[in-house]
Simulated scan of single mutants.
Amino acid sequence: MDGVRVLVVEDEGAIAMLIEEMLEDLGCIVVASVAQLAKATDIARSIEVDLAMLDVNLAGQLVFPVAEILRDRNIPFLFSTGYGASGLSSEFAQHPVLHKPFSQKDLEAKITAALVTRAEAAGYSHPEG
């Protein structure tokens, strides 16, 4: 995970800080942390990151417009939510979902899944396969 650049979109300050700390402990670099949907959509259009972590519900607004921008830019992302996968649009059902609360081990597994999915989509294969 060393050097993986991450965008965090989370509206709860304490949770955002916890996620940032977990990411940094994994060796990731938090490039930006955003709490509002409008700002997140603006940043998603231009930020250079390897991965984004998106809270599904931002103060009552769904984060899917940000997910659409990231998908169009081929930037992998995962969702974090207290609502479970059932809260996702079917359009994004294949993306990794972290169920709040989650552990650092869970976070690491979902980041790996998101990055592997991106590599496979780009035509790279696993070293062992």
Rank of each mutant, 00 (worst) to 15 (best):
M1F: 14
D2C: 01
G3R: 11
L7A: 04
L7M: 13
L7V: 00
V8T: 08
V8F: 01
D11K: 04
D11M: 02
G13T: 12
G13K: 11
A16N: 04
A16H: 05
M17G: 11
I19C: 02
E20A: 05
E20P: 00
M22G: 04
D25Y: 01
L26M: 05
G27Q: 02
C28N: 03
V31M: 04
S33P: 00
S33R: 07
Q36M: 05
Q36N: 12
L37K: 07
L37P: 06
A38V: 08
K39L: 12
T41Y: 09
T41K: 08
T41W: 02
T41M: 14
I43S: 00
R45N: 04
S46Q: 14
S46A: 13
I47H: 04
I47S: 01
E48N: 14
E48H: 11
E48S: 11
E48W: 08
D50W: 09
D50K: 07
D50Y: 01
L51R: 06
L51H: 02
M53L: 15
M53G: 13
M53R: 04
L54S: 02
N57I: 08
N57C: 00
N57G: 01
L58F: 05
L58P: 02
Q61C: 01
Q61G: 00
V63M: 06
V63E: 02
V63P: 06
V63W: 01
F64M: 01
V66T: 11
E68Y: 06
I69F: 05
L70W: 04
L70N: 09
N74C: 14
N74D: 15
N74W: 11
I75F: 05
I75M: 06
P76V: 06
P76A: 10
P76F: 12
F77K: 03
F77T: 06
F77A: 09
L78N: 06
F79K: 11
F79R: 09
F79V: 14
S80D: 12
S80L: 08
S80Y: 01
T81Y: 07
Y83C: 02
G84P: 11
S86I: 07
S86T: 09
G87N: 10
L88D: 11
S89L: 11
S90I: 01
A93P: 05
A93M: 10
A93N: 08
A93G: 04
A93W: 09
Q94C: 09
P96D: 04
V97N: 13
L98V: 10
L98E: 11
H99G: 14
K100I: 11
K100W: 04
P101S: 08
F102K: 09
F102G: 10
F102M: 10
S103L: 03
S103Q: 07
Q104H: 08
Q104D: 09
K105Q: 13
L107H: 07
L107M: 15
E108K: 14
E108W: 03
E108I: 00
E108F: 01
A109H: 10
A109F: 07
K110C: 12
I111N: 10
A113F: 01
A113C: 01
A113G: 05
A113E: 15
A114M: 11
A114Y: 06
V116L: 15
T117Q: 15
R118N: 13
A119G: 10
A119S: 15
E120Q: 14
E120D: 12
A121R: 12
A121Q: 13
A122I: 08
G123V: 14
G123W: 12
Y124N: 12
Y124C: 13
S125E: 14
H126F: 15
G129L: 13
